[in-house]
Amino acid sequence: MKLNYRFLKNPQYIALLKEGALNTLIITFFCLIFGFLLGLIFALMRQSKVKIFRIIGAFWVDFLRNTPFLVQIFFFYYGLPVLGIQTSPVITSIIALSINISAVNCEAIRAGLMAVKKDYFDCAYALGFDKIQTIRYVVLPISLRVAFKPLVNNFINLILTTSTCFSITVVDLMGASKIINGRVDRPFEIYMMLLVMYFCLLTLISIISKAIDKRIAIKL
């Protein structure tokens, strides 16, 4: 059988793919921000001196990492309306995926924070830096460098995972492809195209991030 990509000439499908790409981008963008912030909050909770915070943080991470994302997103999709909360599928996806990604981000950030031992604080304080300055000039630059690689990995995973959001009717790249396939019935061509698109994008991100990591990496 020959590959047939004629359907790409139909502007209607191109528009659909564009819409899908936009939604994938939107979900990725917001999840990147919220996922990082949530991850930071829970990382700080897990490092906190208050026991109850540590327990909540540990449970949060454990739970999210030991249950499938698909179940999590269905939980919100079917659960939120029962609570009387009506949102769009895109927003539901952003909520579910931000929460999901926060667990792995939490672990990455925590590893970064733990890399900054007490000696670093002593040295910075003795040089005259106060707590805020120490965090700004010493703790953050070091921990973010240590956390960079795992955070990029999580980012790549995030992009991969956005493709499951079509299961709650989001028209992302995958959702758009599914709709197009429903009309032209060229599954191999469409999904192969999608696979190559994701592959190229993620390979590009990997290459760029490795170049950045090489520049900023520190050996502790």
Partner: peptide, 16 residues
């Protein structure tokens, strides 16, 4: 701390 500089047994040269 400006008046008294301090050096420790486990001094760290900031790695970044």
């Amino acid at each position: 701390r400006k008046t008294c500089g301090m050096v420790f047994q486990q001094t760290v040269i900031f790695p970044h």
